[in-house]
């Protein structure tokens, strides 16, 4: 009589069932499992503990784990929904789902607002805007005089801060995005639509088929 071993698939802490994540997001079960392949790769690049640490996130984005980048830091903080300093699998999938081409536009607009609200005051202030423009210039090795940076910030506030109270609130932000739709293009990642093509290794391992 033959003998076989049933090896139970063990997942790291923070793992969530793809079927649950697929029911909450625009991803199919197959795509969530493909994202798990990507997550495993990212979360084991420095410490193999099934969690994405900030250094691992930076390593994936910049090929170095010690590059300071304001926007990457903000994205990491928003992905870290539980605010415990790491990104778990469920957080990774839920956060990335906002970048899916089929995700609701309102979610993309709200996510970007939170990203730019550096101090989480519920508004984007002129000072935060200046900080972001200065950081972006610095991170791209560009230099503009402070006067020019002030002009850019002033011009933006003139356009967006329609209540003239020195800050952009949620309502003003939505109106501003309506007039400048190109600014939310960065909230869509086309790669998320063809995930199982990007990670074909998964299809070999999966018993699930969306086709």
């Amino acid at each position: 009589m033959g003998c076989f071993c049933l090896k139970k698939l063990r997942h790291k802490p923070g793992y969530e069932a793809p079927i649950n994540l697929a029911s909450e997001t625009p991803f199919t079960v197959n795509e969530v499992e493909a994202l798990y392949d990507l997550f495993k790769k990212l979360s084991s690049s420095i410490i193999d503990d099934g969690l994405i640490h900030k250094e691992e996130f930076q390593l994936a984005l910049f090929k170095t784990s010690n590059k300071q980048n304001l926007f990457a830091d903000r994205i990491f903080d928003l992905f870290d929904i539980k605010h415990n300093g790491v990104i778990e699998f469920g957080e990774f999938v839920r956060s990335l789902s906002v970048f899916h081409p089929n995700a609701p536009e309102a979610d993309k607009i709200a996510f970007l607002f939170r990203l730019y609200d550096l101090r989480q005051t519920g508004c984007i202030e002129a000072e935060e805007l200046k900080e972001m423009v200065t950081a972006l210039l610095c991170e791209n090795n560009l230099s503009l005089s402070e006067d020019v940076v002030d002009l850019i910030v002033e011009k933006t506030m003139m356009e967006a801060d329609t209540k003239r109270d020195g800050k952009i609130d949620d309502e003003e932000w939505k109106e501003f995005v309506k007039k400048n739709p190109s600014i939310i293009k960065i909230m869509t990642l086309s790669d998320l639509k063809e995930l199982t093509l990007a990670f074909p290794s998964f299809v070999m391992n999966s018993g699930v088929s969306d086709l």
């Binding site: 984005l61 972001m132 600014i183 960065i186 990642l189």
Partner: peptide, 25 residues
């Protein structure tokens, strides 16, 4: 011509903000 753009356009056009690299092999 950065002054003709608003700050959010500048940010969105820069490479500072791109998650595409997460998907690079």
């Amino acid at each position: 011509k950065p002054v003709s753009m608003n700050a959010f356009e500048l940010i969105s056009r820069s490479q500072s903000f791109s998650l595409d690299k997460l998907f690079e092999k």
